[in-house]
Write a protein that binds this DNA or RNA. Structure first.
Length: 219
DNA sequence: GAATAGATTGTCT
DNA sequence: GACAATCTATTCT
């Protein structure tokens, strides 16, 4: 028996399909709120991305808030405004996608008000729709947590890359759908040790007990 | 289970 | 030219 974290079963495909039919995307004002509020509110919501290959979606189970220019862990630290960070300075509800380590992509949603370069990083999802598509993109069997338990992995699974930079997250191709969350935990953000005191802030949110959370929280 | 190294490229100094 | 909001395979214990 593998080691033990509580294991919610993945939603049945029928449940996912029903979810897709009924729900309207969360409106832009969902994102136009403080970063910590949105980061927490995103837990349990369903991130959906549709491409010519098909639709894939998952429940968000882990997020992090980034709040430049003060936050030294943010790419917008110190008000740094470049081609890469530009979208963060615009209105809420658009995608900030960046590449890291030369080969992985990470997906964020711009939040707060225009001119405030804040974003919420989506770090892990629990697959809900398009399991075969995600499995094919990742080269990982459906049902394995390695499908989507990390920022780079979920981007690959959902087909999110540079093409999604600046994309509207309130649109037909890319959106969040309503969803409920279980108990929510907090911890410091992952791999931002370079940010000094800012690295210690408990700005990571996750659904407690969800096996898709990328880095197992202590307790 | 834990620790390590290697992959690989856009972005910024 | 350095390095990154990571992932994987491999090599220990």
């Amino acid at each position: 028996m593998p080691a033990v974290r509580p294991v919610p079963e993945p939603r049945a495909p029928s449940e996912g399909a029903a979810l897709l039919e009924g729900a309207a995307p969360l409106p832009r004002d969902f994102y136009a709120r403080p970063a910590l509020v949105v980061a927490r509110a995103c837990i349990g919501k369903v991130l959906v991305h549709t491409t010519p290959e098909g639709t894939a979606a998952g429940r968000i189970v882990e997020t992090e808030a980034y709040r430049g220019p003060e936050d030294l862990a943010a790419h917008s630290a110190g008000g740094r405004r470049t081609v890469r960070t530009e979208v963060m300075f615009g209105p809420a509800g658009y995608a900030y996608v960046f590449q890291l380590y030369g080969m992985h992509w990470a997906f964020n949603i711009v939040v707060a008000s225009e001119g405030e370069p804040h974003a919420v990083l989506i770090r892990a999802i629990e697959p809900v729709i398009g399991l075969p598509l995600m499995s094919r993109r990742r080269g990982v069997a459906p049902g394995r947590i390695e499908l989507t338990n990390g920022p780079g992995k979920l981007c690959k699974a959902l087909g999110l890359d540079r093409a999604a930079y600046g994309m509207d997250v309130c649109g037909a191709q890319l959106s969040l759908l309503p969803g409920a969350a279980g108990p929510i935990g907090r911890s410091p953000r992952i791999n931002v040790d370079y940010a000094g005191a800012w690295a210690k802030k408990p700005w990571r949110f996750y659904e407690r007990g969800n096996r898709y959370v990328s880095v197992p929280p202590r307790h």
